[in-house]
Design a protein around this nucleic acid. Structure first.
Lengths: 310, 310
DNA sequence: GGTGTGTCACAACCATTTGTTGTGCGGGTA
DNA sequence: TACCCGCACAACAAATGGTTGTGACACACC
């Protein structure tokens, strides 16, 4: 299905004749005729009833009309998504099963009409993500800085404390534990999604390093043994983007959730963005975060009123 | 923007490498590489970060991902809209400003998830519309039969009485009338949208004939003089299809609404469909109509409880 | 009722594109 | 170090998409 042919179809439908449609598109009448004929051949239906004086839509043509329009609009939106100056706000959320994704979804629902492009740079190191923001390719991220120096021109605000639990398969030694201490957990290698056998980088490596956990690089295709999972409510995620991670485990894995205690692991996340000339939607989003989380604002850093435990 | 290139982009994004994506699509690796390169050139951005061991999405690539998916889904929906056996229910409503369109919209809202293709065969004669239904190209229509014999295999049920009023411009002799009688109205030619200078056929001709009105074929580009307009609530129409008729008059025309009395013109519409093997959504719709309008069912004809005046 | 005009479809030809095969380069692995 | 594996570039073949030229058909006009 050629988009040029679809555009020609729409032009003919609008003008009522091939000649005028061809003029509008800057091609000859014969070319327009060919395009529509090819479209009709591909779809296997007659779209126009040709007469000596113009062409009228058939029933099939009328049925196709709104879908053809929507198709071209979708192409236009796709083009806009990567066009600097026209694109939607781009935010990285590390992982779509985390609290920031839910936060974005709540914001998205409150502000109808806005567009968000949520990306998941899970395997990308914090410094590389910050570089993308600095370069303008990305507008914001939710990351844990944990001592990483913030490059000039960037702003950060700590907004979310991420909580985690352990998921284990039925054969795992901790399968029947009521709870597990963080100290005990450091003795078991943990599988984390999105990591290759080579060098694990990015969000999950940072997460493991924060709690001193060992990473198991085998992966779920060899049977999940243990998995650190975010405690976020994941019911909304499918709606957010219509795109599940291909690392998601199937329901049939019979996983058990083990709480982690003593101490409860808390992973603080900051929203990080580029100072100056903010994307209008970003300004809205930051304001939304402030009204929802901030108590004090000081030196571009505002702290939520539910302070982290550590 | 070539849809094959978009599909290739998605395959590469899913598999993480050009080679596997090419195998999946049944082309060589070089062809897949070329397609994506062409897409990148057209969009002006880098979509993948190529490495010796596969390719990873860039930020721009990730931003494009959901839109690319939606684009292919839109193409699939367009294809399905004209594929026999897979297509949505097709109903003709004569005119999108009429009561049947509102009825369909109410039904559409109650049954979330269904798909409707609303077509407007305004200029098509009743007999031709019935032939389309008989041939299976159309599933149902709202028309006034007015003595037209119903072809074999078709069923009809009278459900709606359409009401009309007169719209006139400020220079029209009836511009300041409080009301106008039907007898008086027959002396003024009425413009009706969608009619050419040649032979007026279809809905508006039937409507004019029903009340003995003369048709003015000049059209609004020469200044609207008088117009018979449906009394339907038109606020919902834009939502129904996203497609306004190009014959709609602009708001700036300063039209006045004159009620028609003595007698009040009533134009009965029947829903007409093909007997046997009904489209599942059609069965739902007919049931919906029955619960909303029917009082008695007899010989496949059920009459609403608010009977027409004539 | 013949003639003219406007519109669409078919045919032949040409240009561009798209795909294939063959090959080189680079990085991770054994 | 040598070997794969995967991607990009080059050259060639096939097919697609465009243009010009022409014929058919219906409506409008005289």
């Amino acid at each position: 299905m050629d988009l040029d042919a679809v555009a020609t179809f729409l032009a003919v439908a609008a003008t009522g004749q091939f000649q005028a449609a061809a003029d509008e598109l800057g091609v000859t009448q014969q070319a327009a005729s060919k395009r529509v004929a090819a479209l009709e051949r591909e779809l296997g239906v007659q779209l126009f009833a040709r007469a000596a004086r113009g062409a009228r839509l058939t029933v099939d043509g009328q049925a196709l009309l709104p879908h053809a329009r929507e198709l071209l609009r979708a192409a236009e939106r796709a083009r806009a998504a990567v066009t600097p100056g026209r694109r939607a706000l781009r935010i990285d959320v590390c992982n779509r099963r985390t609290a920031p994704a839910n936060l974005l979804y709540a914001f998205y629902q409150q502000h109808s009409g806005i567009e968000l492009d949520v990306v998941t740079l899970t395997g990308v190191a914090v410094t590389a993500v910050l570089a993308e923001i600095g370069a303008g390719a990305l507008d914001a991220t939710f990351r844990s800085l944990r001592g990483t120096p913030l490059p000039g021109g960037l702003r950060a605000a700590r907004v979310i404390d991420e909580r985690h639990e352990l998921l284990v398969g039925p054969r795992h030694p901790l399968a029947n534990a009521k709870a597990v201490s963080l100290a005990e957990l450091t003795r078991h290698p943990i599988w984390m999604p999105g990591l290759t056998e080579t060098e694990p980088v990015g969000y999950y490596q940072d997460l493991a390093a924060a709690f001193g956990l060992a990473i198991d690089t085998i992966g779920p295709s060899f049977g999940i043994e243990a998995l650190l999972a975010e405690l976020a409510d994941s019911t909304e995620l499918a709606n957010l983007v219509g795109e599940g991670s291909r690392y998601l485990w199937p329901e049939s894995y019979d996983l058990r959730r083990i709480p982690i205690v003593d101490p409860v692991p808390v992973y603080p996340l900051s929203v990080i963005w580029r100072a100056g000339n903010p994307h209008p939607v970003l300004a809205n989003f930051l304001a939304y975060l402030k009204t929802r989380y901030a108590t004090t604002v000081r030196e571009d850093v505002w702290v939520p009123d539910w302070a982290p435990r550590s």
